[in-house]
Design a protein around this nucleic acid. Structure first.
Lengths: 106, 106
DNA sequence: GGAATATATCAATATATCTTGATGTTTAAT
DNA sequence: ATTAAACATCAAGATATATTGATATATTCC
């Protein structure tokens, strides 16, 4: 039950659904890219990314100073169904501003 | 997005998952039966039942003074997947105390 | 019609969650 | 070594959600 609620509650927020959709579309991104693209402050993003990770949807990989967040793979059946449902949502997605390539300076 | 969040948030509560599981197991029940079986007060149940209905998981049918709540059928693919996931949870289910047959007197 | 049952809703309080700004911690560049 | 970037975490305030008891609305039975 605990795990189920943690999984569900990780989706129970528009910000997190947006983040998930954005990472699903663009693949792994660092926090500073998400910051730029989604126009959110860092602490807010970090928090939501952690919740999505604890919910089993994301994984993190350290690359130097960067934390690269991406959709965990493989997702189990249920989480994949959730992701499929999110893919069908009509969400206004911002453009990707990938500054990390040129050296991100927030 | 709005509908998705409403669906997800309706599952984001242990009480509601329990109610859903209980109705899934026993079929349609009135509020007073749920009250007896789950040991909850009426206002609390009414609230959660409404949220599950608004989340698209339950339907209500009036039968005289009683409101019979049951799993909505057919469920769409995503809600069905959610229900399947809930069926797999290890939940301690109370016994059914169906007093409505003999005339429920709360 | 009047009393009692079943349910819904409201108001107040308690609890949890989200947002922001501040503060740590680690890594990279010089 | 120092400085700065990238990220995590914490504390405080704001917002949302849950619980309870009280009240309102049907409906049934007499």
């Amino acid at each position: 039950m605990e795990t189920f609620i943690r999984t569900i509650s990780s989706l129970n927020d528009e910000t997190r659904v947006l983040i998930l959709r954005f990472l699903d579309l663009h693949g792994g991104l660092c926090v500073c890219d998400l910051q730029q693209s989604l126009g959110m402050i860092q602490s807010r993003l970090s928090r939501h990314l952690k919740i999505l990770k604890d919910g089993g949807f994301l994984k993190v990989e350290r690359a130097g100073a960067w934390s690269i967040y991406s959709i965990r793979s493989p997702l189990d059946r249920f989480r994949l169904e959730c992701l499929e449902e999110i893919r069908c949502l009509d969400i206004e997605l911002p453009l990707l501003k990938k500054l990390s390539d040129k050296g991100c300076k927030i």
